[in-house]
């Protein structure tokens, strides 16, 4: 089909979204997009959700942290922000989520808010509580494996 004339094309805003999970969580692109649409549908209703758009353009998540670019219709950014904040779990794994920033172009969004390479995570044994436990270390963040699942700790707790 022929392109729309410029004044009729929809205007977009691009949200840079930061994602955090436990290190063993498997969060896929499709699952995240579905969670986003469900979150928007439940919070904003079908009409509001259709207005906001919320299309996932790029997504990467591994080892407990990730990031995504979400496309939103201009003028519906606050609704989109609310819908993003309501994503509390993806496929049963709890996620921490935050809008890092908003840009008018995908390129600006990636240059300004995306870290090129995610900080690499390593496995280490640390003393936590009364025992030696294995932990996944990513920068200052330590996710310590305990009997009842992971516990989030910081470098300050371990030293």
């Amino acid at each position: 089909m022929k392109h729309l004339p410029k004044h009729l094309r929809p205007r977009w805003r691009y949200l840079a979204v930061g994602i955090e999970t436990w290190p063993d969580a498997e969060v896929g692109r499709r699952a995240f997009q579905r969670a986003l649409w469900y979150g928007a549908g439940n919070l904003l209703g079908d009409a509001g959700s259709a207005d906001a758009g919320l299309k996932l353009l790029s997504f990467s998540c591994s080892g407990g942290s990730g990031e995504a670019v979400v496309r939103v219709r201009r003028g519906h950014v606050e609704e989109a922000r609310a819908a993003v904040a309501c994503v509390s779990e993806v496929g049963g794994d709890p996620v921490g989520i935050r809008v890092r920033g908003i840009s008018g172009t995908v390129r600006a969004c990636e240059e300004r808010y995306m870290r090129r390479a995610a900080a690499s995570s390593t496995q280490r044994d640390v003393a936590f509580g009364d025992a030696e436990r294995s932990a996944v270390v990513c920068g200052d963040a330590y996710d310590v494996r305990t009997e009842s699942g992971y516990v989030g700790a910081a470098a300050f707790d371990i030293e």
């Binding site: 606050e78 993003v84 809008v99």
Partner: peptide
Amino acid sequence: HLELRAPRELVAV
């Protein structure tokens, strides 16, 4: 820490 949300997100919700 995963359940924490930034102030602007809370305001939007």
